[in-house]
Design a protein around this nucleic acid. Structure first.
Lengths: 343, 343
DNA sequence: CTGAAAGCGCTTACAG
DNA sequence: CTGAAAGCGCTTACAG
């Protein structure tokens, strides 16, 4: 057996392998797809020919002929680089093993023709699945467009209609509750809170957990210490400026709904002459690996973004399995660092 | 004309459009691809039918039949989330307008079978182009594998063999030179330097610019103030620990080859009881938007990563144009903030 | 256990 | 200016 010369591009095809192995292309197809009903001897012959020719099935051809494209897409509209790359890592880690590739498709959640854009995209590329992250995963027009195209999807950290699709999440409310309890146990009774972006479901859940923890001790959030933020550094600075306004009583701790805002709070506090953590404790939420480093190191909640994305891809690719659960709740972790000090 | 019922998946095909418009599929193909030699009247008829049917050409079918896949990939091996997302943004912004989609393909630059993995990938998916970032863009095995597959590629910030492919870059050496000159002009003569990851070409160029600026005033880098780093926060902390060792003379400023390391330097300095910027000025390099926020705000060099990626995609998609230059050098910007203070 | 035929939805190369 | 035929590299559905 000697390899025939391969054409331009160097790629050999199923025909080359079939010829070399002395079988039909259908048999080669069976072997490449690990289908049953092929004699071991035939299988070996085909494998040998495929190896000799460096044959790799053409994904596009498989896709056009078959029912799978081996392409999944990640839809997002989120300015947080660490969050996005964690999501991508998780999806890719799961998808690669199954021969799938990841298309990144950022979407503008405020585009007036968002639904049409998605419909066009799905008509152009036959995706095998979509992973939706906040805030897109909570937008009815997005879900409708995807469902109309008949493409399976999994949502990460959705807020609305949890039964509408398979979902992966963590318990944001419980995490915020537990972190707040820690603050209280450490002697903090005057705690400020910076709300997250109202379009993100997690923001509401985190506040809910915060309030629950306070009420357990008969406390209530104080309006003058509770400020709207938008998950950005700048909004954290603004919130801190309001909460720490000169001439008013200050809280001893501020819990920001994400790490970027916590960083803004710390920056403003330091600029205002407060020593951290002596004069003010600060806590955040996210702990994306390698994303943020503060001084003092930030107490926060570790959100398992990569694991959630891995699980989401797993739900997508296993969706025909009988035993596959349709929803997954992943564990978070409290990360206590020096930005919080006992009173 | 009434739209025929579309099949499962809802997508209409070129045949549906041809039938409805009363022309051949070839004519539909011509119209969809904006080819010449179609009467305006025919063109209108086809457009109308296509609109009525919500027809979108199937990318996979175009790809299999034609010579283009409308897929480009970004290859990278870089732990910096902000860098990666900036690259992706730039590529996507340029590619979308031309109907291209982006596949993200992180590679392990230390994998022993890296070349084989890439070869397999390129045999599996016929990519129209690849964008290579450091350190992959300087690895001979990577370039060889891609060239053997005949896939066009553009490199971002390459160090070696600049003539081997179209490239996009900024002048790292000049940027480091100019920032160092600023430090000198502000009265700093004792300046420490934290080197970047040796596998990244930019690291060497930045050091070169630093040295050039010193020599212009007859100074030399001092070995005890020059430390190897690896672009990570931790390596910045380590470098600062060495440079600021107790009982030794300290520099008045430290220039770290990227922002993460600068952050590490700042954290260590504060931990060691130094006031910033009074006791020590710190400068970094990168200024990825939204990636890092420090207190005091960090003086750094703005590297136009998104613009470089946009330009790289542009080179890829325009590569047949006669007038297209093969290389692009993009401007940087010095960002002077409060982490540096005049002596 | 294996294969011949048809077809996925387009483009290419050619003919008129 | 327009179209009929062939084919891209596979899988599906069917036959034996």
């Amino acid at each position: 057996m000697r390899p025939p010369n391969t054409g331009v591009g160097g790629a050999s095809t199923i025909n080359d392998v079939a010829r070399l192995a002395g079988v039909s292309i259908k048999t080669v197809s069976r072997v490449m797809n690990d289908e049953p009903n092929v004699r071991q001897e035939t299988r070996d012959k085909v494998q040998e020919a495929a190896t000799l020719l460096h044959y790799r099935p053409n994904l596009l051809a498989r896709s056009l002929a078959g029912s799978r494209s081996f392409l999944v897409a990640l839809f997002y509209d989120n300015p947080n680089p660490a969050y996005i790359t964690e999501l991508q890592k998780g999806v890719i880690n799961r998808a690669r093993g199954s021969g799938y590739h990841l298309l990144v498709e950022p979407q503008d959640s405020h585009a007036p023709d968002l639904a049409r854009q998605i419909t066009n995209l799905l008509a152009t590329i036959r995706l095998d699945g979509i992973i939706l992250s906040p805030p897109l995963c909570d937008m009815a027009v997005v879900l409708q467009a995807i469902e109309a195209a008949g493409v399976p999807y999994v949502r990460v950290s959705p807020f609305l209609n949890p039964d509408r699709s398979p979902c992966v999440r963590m318990d944001d409310a419980q995490a915020a509750y537990e972190l707040t309890r820690k603050l209280i146990e450490m002697g903090h009774t005057d705690i400020g809170f910076v709300l997250g972006h109202p379009e993100h479901g997690g923001a509401h859940q985190r506040y809910e957990g915060f309030v629950r923890a306070l009420r357990e001790d008969g406390m209530e959030p104080r309006p003058e210490w509770t400020r709207q933020g938008y998950f950005s550094y700048e909004s954290g600075v603004e919130a801190a400026r309001a909460i720490l306004a000169p001439g008013t009583k200050h809280p001893t701790a501020i819990f920001a709904s994400n790490d970027y805002m916590a960083l803004g709070v710390m920056a403003h506090a330091q600029q205002a002459g407060l020593r951290l953590p002596d004069d003010l404790s600060v806590a955040g939420f996210d702990d994306a690996p390698g994303a943020l480093r503060t001084w003092p190191p930030l107490t926060t909640v570790r959100q398992p973004v990569e694991d959630m994305a891995y699980a989401a891809a797993d739900l997508l690719l296993n969706r025909n399995d009988a035993g596959a659960d349709q929803d997954r709740m992943l564990p978070f972790a409290l990360i206590m660092r020096e930005s919080v000090r006992a009173r």
